[in-house]
Amino acid sequence: MQDTLAAEALLVERCQQGDTAAFDQLVEQHGQWVYNLAYRMTGDREEAHDIAQEAFVRAFGAIKKFRRGSSFSTWLYRVATNACLDEIKRRRRRPAPASSLVNEDRLEPDPPDSAPDVAEHIESLERQELVRRAIASLPLHHRLTLVLYELQGRSYEEIAHITKTNVGTVKSRLSRARLALKDALEPHLELLRGG
């Protein structure tokens, strides 16, 4: 763990000196969750791809401001979160039609080899799709808190730091996000419980 952090610190330092190759490595390391954060926030892969790029571009531009000793991933979360929020707000004027929230290809992936039952796998995909759409319908900050906590596994403290709030606010938002999610999924609760 210490080695990983030291290696990351070295990469960051190289990036701060303008080494784009080092930044490529950072993108490789953190691209997955940055993209996922954007995807869960937008519910759209293409938008998520754009936002992830934007987040990394912003990060590279601001990486000289990154202070050693703090967590790079938390800092990058903050940058990525801001990129997400900015992009979502920017695109609010042209909200995507409801149909676009349905990820058609998401419903037709090849079942994993470990899937014991195809029907169960399909049900799981349906539940995920329902939840994805329900998440996308949440208020922005509730959505962000829920994604960071439930899907990204960030702690209350980290989320408070990322979103520039306090832990109490994070807890409150998370609670309300869950309740709102339950309301959104109310018609499909049976399917969810079946899972």
Binding site: Y35, Q128, E150, R178, L189, G195
Partner: peptide, 22 residues
């Protein structure tokens, strides 16, 4: 119901990042 929703959230698999992101 809330438990089921949280379980479904945990069930969500991370999306693979696009290959061309970097």
């Amino acid at each position: 119901s809330l438990d089921a929703i949280c379980a479904t959230l945990r069930e969500l698999r991370p999306e693979p990042a696009p290959a061309g992101l970097a």
